[in-house]
Nucleic acid binder design. Structure first.
Lengths: 208, 208
DNA sequence: CCATTTTCGTACCGTGCGGTATTCATACCG
DNA sequence: CGGTATGAATACCGCACGGTACGAAAATGG
C-alpha cells in the first residue's frame, strides 16, 4: 500500500531519522541531567552529523523543545489522564506515587524528564522554557481539578485553599521525582510520600 | 600590640586577601547556582588574578570546599544549634521554616548555599562532595536528635521510624530552600511547609 | 549525458573553560 | 650595592562547547 511509485521529491533522498534522533535526545536528557548533555554528545550517541541535527531542529533550544513535546505526549499525558479516572482517591494517589518512585529499567530511566527540565528552568532556552511553564500550569490545573472533584464527593477534605493544595501536591511529586533521579532509595521516598500526603488522607487542623 | 617589629618573612609580602576572596566566592556560589559560576568569573568579581587564586586554594574543588567550610561555620552551624535549644517544638519548627523561606536581602542571598551544593552533589569535586555528604549526615543526625528528644517529652508523636521522620524533615526543608532560590513566593512555600509538617504536629494514622 | 535540486558530512569558527609556565616586582640579608 | 627568596600577574595551553561554510553525494528532469 505504500505508493513507492508516487512522485518522489526532486533532490537527494532524506536519510535523517528524526524519530530515532529524538529518542536518543530524550533518553540522554532524561538519564543524565538536561544540561551536561551537549549537542555534540547527542550527535555522538545518535551517530549523526551535527549539521544534520541542526538542519532538522534549528538549534539546541528547539531540539529540547521537540524532545519535551514527544516526552509529554508519550509519558506525561497518560499519567495526567489517570487523574480524570473515576477511581478512589487513594488508588489514584498510590499510582501517582508509584509513577514518581519507579525504578530504572533498561529502556526507561528513573525520574521524569519534565521534572528535570523544571528544575533547570532558568537555563533553558526561551522556547523550551515557555513550554515547561505551560506544562507546569497544565499539571497544576489537573491536580486542582482532581482534588476538587474528590473533595466535592467527600472523599477528602482540602487542608488548604485549592491553589495551595494543588501546588503542594505538585511540589511533593516533583521533589520525589528529583530524589529518585538523584539515586535515593525508592522505599524511603515512598515512605516520605505517605507522610507528606497524610495531610490529605487524614484531615486535621493545620493551624501553625 | 601588633608586633610589626617581629620577624617578617623573607620574600615579598603577601597581598592576597583570602577572606575577601572567599566572601566573593560564597556570595557568587550562593546567589547563582554553584555550577554556572566559573573560576574566571570569581576572579573577575574579586578583582584578583587567576594564578593568585590557584596559589591560595589549589583548584576549583578546594576553593568550593573552603567556601563551604566558611559557610557552614557562619550560617549553617547557628541554625542547627537552635535544634538543641529547649524551646517548644512548634517554635523551633517555625524558626526553621523562617530560615528556609527568608527573603533575599542586599547582603544575604535567599536560599542556602549548602542546599544548592547538595542538589548539584554529583558534579562537585571529590573534596567538596565528601564535605557535602558529611554535612548532610550531620544535619540529619541533628534533626533526628531534636525529633527524638521532643518525642520523648511527649511534645510530638513520631509518625514514622526516626530515620524516616528525620530524613523527611530534611527533605522538606531542602525542597523549601530550593523553591525559594528558584524565586517561588515565600508565602506559598510557608503554606506548603505547614501542610508538610502537619503530620508531625497533628499525629494521626499514616497507613497507606 | 549533463544540469538541477536537495541532502549529506568534514572541517572549521569564535568563545569560555580549568589550569599553568614564565617573567616581573618586592621584600630581607650581608 | 648584589644575591636570594617569595608573591604577583600576563599570557598562554588544550579542550569542549554551540553553531556553520562549503563542497561532495545522490536523486530527478531533460
Amino acid at each position: 500500500m505504500t505508493d513507492d511509485s508516487t512522485k518522489r521529491p526532486r533532490g537527494r533522498p532524506k536519510t535523517f531519522d528524526r524519530a530515532r534522533t529524538l529518542d536518543v535526545a530524550i533518553d540522554s536528557y532524561w538519564r543524565h541531567s538536561v544540561d551536561s548533555v551537549s549537542v555534540n554528545e547527542i550527535c555522538r550517541r545518535a551517530k549523526i552529523s551535527k549539521p544534520g541535527l541542526y538542519r532538522e531542529f534549528g538549534d539546541e533550544d528547539h531540539l529540547m523543545d521537540a524532545a519535551l513535546t514527544r516526552y509529554s505526549e508519550t509519558v506525561l499525558a497518560p499519567v495526567l489522564a489517570t487523574l480524570s479516572d473515576d477511581r478512589p482517591f487513594r488508588k489514584t494517589l498510590e499510582s501517582l506515587i508509584e509513577f514518581a518512585t519507579r525504578e530504572e529499567t533498561p529502556h526507561v530511566p528513573a525520574g521524569c524528564l519534565f521534572a528535570k527540565m523544571r528544575s533547570f528552568r532558568w537555563r533553558l532556552g526561551p522556547v523550551t522554557g515557555e513550554h515547561v511553564d505551560q506544562l507546569s500550569e497544565g499539571a497544576i490545573a489537573a491536580y486542582a481539578a482532581w482534588l476538587e472533584r474528590r473533595a466535592n464527593r467527600g472523599e477528602i477534605e482540602l487542608p488548604a485553599p485549592i491553589e495551595i493544595t494543588a501546588t503542594y501536591v505538585d511540589a511533593q511529586l516533583t521533589m520525589m521525582l528529583t530524589q529518585i533521579s538523584a539515586g535515593e532509595d525508592p522505599e524511603l521516598v515512598r515512605a516520605h510520600a505517605h507522610l507528606a500526603f497524610a495531610v490529605l488522607t487524614n484531615p486535621t487542623s493545620t493551624s501553625p
